[in-house]
Design a protein around this nucleic acid. Structure first.
Lengths: 148, 148
DNA sequence: TCTTAAATAAGAATAATTATCAATTAGGAA
DNA sequence: TTCCTAATTGATAATTATTCTTATTTAAGA
């Protein structure tokens, strides 16, 4: 396993964190999940193969990842925080009826918003990021949402 | 008091909810607070004048207001939900170091985003609203953030 | 290999929110 | 106006998500 995870290990190491088995498993899992998991989701998904990793460790680990720029934290109107391995500028579509968060990447939109704020004078604020949230309900929960 | 609150009473009544003393006090408070209060903030701010209104009632009431279109619910990266009496389209500036949420109204931006999505085909999603979140840190916590 | 600060597991503690339920009340019907 | 009923409320228990504590283990550099 140590070989196949070399990419993950490098990411963790480069972020300034110690490389541990737990961190490798958790980061790898979130990178593969692609559905903005909660801590509980992550825990459930690693539990069988890694029964010794505790829920508390998952909490501490994702928080460390957020602080070290490996994940971003997404809040919703339903309590649990969710975690996103995609760090480049993108929006989120929240489906309140299915609790889904769908990434929305659009360079044109990004440029538009960015250039809009270029022309604004924002005083007394160090902007970290600007995110667009599209809130709605999925019409057919079985089918995907598509924007094109 | 019944006279001076007639506007508030009408709003509650028109939303389909029964008009109660508790609801009048709570809605009036949130409308005046203007800082996206948490339930705890609202409770603290009404408590002295209304010691009989319980915390649970504040929770139930703001949730009823959200469901009936009198308030909107705003989530942050720090646990508590916050409530916003402004329902027209606007963005939020989150200052993570001061926990402030500042409204950002800009017609030009609204139009821009709206017309952007006019030209997109969004399938299988009933869009409820689109919000821009500007995340950052206040540089001087004593001073205001301004965008112009 | 040794050392040490950082990370972990287990479980207790806390914070925010929701649920329960008996008593009260708003608002429409009589 | 009075009555009726379903909705609302207060008090408090329960739940959920998250953080804290502490003894033990471990990564990574000397």
């Amino acid at each position: 396993m140590s070989l196949s995870y070399s990419h993950i290990k490098d990411k963790i190491s480069e972020s300034g964190l110690k490389v541990t088995h737990q961190r490798i498993v958790i980061l790898n899992t979130v990178l593969q999940m692609d559905n903005h998991p909660t801590v509980e989701h992550i825990y459930e998904s690693i539990k069988d193969a890694n029964p010794s990793i505790s829920l508390g460790t998952v909490y501490k680990t994702v928080e460390a990842f957020v602080n070290n720029g490996l994940l971003s934290k997404v809040s919703t109107n339903e309590g649990q925080m969710r975690y996103d391995p995609k760090l480049d500028n993108h929006g989120h579509i929240y489906c309140s009826n299915t609790s889904e968060i769908i990434d929305y990447f659009d360079d044109e939109l990004n440029d538009m918003i960015l250039s809009f704020f270029k022309n604004k004078r924002v005083s007394n604020l160090k902007i970290k990021n600007i995110t667009l949230q599209i809130n709605g309900d999925k019409i057919d929960p079985e089918k995907d949402v598509l924007i094109k």
